[in-house]
Design a protein around this nucleic acid. Structure first.
Lengths: 215, 215
DNA sequence: GGGCACTCTAAGCGAGCGCTCACCTTCGGC
DNA sequence: GCCGAAGGTGAGCGCTCGCTTAGAGTGCCC
């Protein structure tokens, strides 16, 4: 009642699982700051002031600046993995599932670009233990995409020489969207998602798009 | 005579254009440090000690730490642009030129990964003026690739719906190699270059590889 | 063989960093 | 109406940062 939900729109509330309200405000401020300037160029004073608090308040909710990055990275990777799993395990042909996976994964990287940027590009700033945890999640991400491609090869839908290499390329293409996507640019996340789904289906030699094809 | 050339092998001497010997050693040290830990996490003391000098020696050859990054970024972008121009302006079909451009561009990003990483991922650490200069070079990079794709569409070799979007995706795919490529990994830069050339030809709907095709 | 330009070092300055500590609120339970 | 837990602040500690300064070593020109 003191403060209403502040996020604008769309899908599930982004950082709803971060429970004390002040902790969530700090975390959102950290995501913005890390995305804009990078982890190492961001100061704890900057994060706190974006959240409307004093520098000391940060340490009531987080032990260190690195713990903030760790929490952000963990939640972000969970979300990314969830998106891919949902697409990979739905009903439909491998072609449909791959197109769905790529377009939704790309939509997330473009639409939630600030989060995705931190999640994908600040991995090296984590300490060894936290890094290992995140790397394990990334391997699961890789496995989901590889699984769809393997299904398509097995069913004869796809024509792929190097499954692991192609998986890597597909993921790389999607992830890099967080680097170049510009909110003020000419493309919407949906448009980029549709374009990329088409490009990826071409990469795997699919017989072409499920519905979105040219005439 | 006191100290021989130290680089191992291949192509043109990488930082040969940096003239006082000490300035080159500092610049090479900075490339390594920036690539490993990022610009903001690298200290001037770290750079100087990698070059075997005292911290103050850096400021004899460079005004600031940022000037070092600027010089690295400038030389690196010149090199990247040179690679693409060479491929784009050789003789041959659009298919051959695109395959050549992608495979050589990818070979550079994988083989000179440390340099490429700094060049592609530390742009935001530059000040407005230096950034503007580099962004102009990037537009030329984009224009070279777009030119080849437009040629292929005009000649009927390629089937592309969104030329600018596809150009962006091709470049994005190549650039991201600098993020994930691992020197100790299972693939050589040449293998990745060949794989990526094949994938890109598929993306543009080329009638398939010029020589490297399956049977 | 003295002067000078060039290169480099030892020492350290002011600033800003991540983080801590002593203390002050607010508020539900009894 | 008092109490303790939870959440917050202002001040500041110890440290390291980018960068500067005074001066030493070296080689080349005349």
């Amino acid at each position: 009642m003191t403060a209403a939900k502040e996020t604008a729109g769309g899908e599930t509330e982004p950082w709803g699982e971060v429970t004390p309200d002040a902790a969530r405000r700090l975390l959102v401020a950290a995501v913005e700051a890390f995305a804009e300037r990078g982890y190492h160029a961001t100061t704890t004073r900057d994060i706190a002031s974006r959240a409307g608090m004093s520098p000391a308040a940060l340490y009531i909710h987080y032990k260190t600046k690195e713990e903030l990055l760790h929490r952000i990275s963990r939640i972000g990777h969970d979300k990314a993995l969830d998106i891919l799993r949902t697409a990979a395990r739905r009903e439909g042909s491998a072609t449909e599932r791959l197109a769905d996976a790529v377009s939704s994964f790309v939509r997330w990287h473009a639409g939630r670009r600030t989060t995705a940027r931190v999640v994908q590009y600040e991995l090296d700033a984590l300490g060894p233990d936290a890094r290992a945890e995140i790397v394990a999640l990334r391997r699961q991400v890789d496995a989901e995409v590889r699984g769809i491609i393997e299904d398509g090869v097995a069913s004869g839908e796809f024509d792929v020489l190097d499954v692991q290499g192609t998986t890597l390329a597909v993921l790389s293409l999607c992830i890099d969207v967080a680097r170049w996507f510009n909110v003020d640019g000419p493309r919407t996340p949906e448009e980029v998602g549709a374009l990329y789904a088409d490009l990826v289906l071409r990469m795997v030699g699919a017989k072409q798009a499920p519905g979105a094809g040219r005439e």
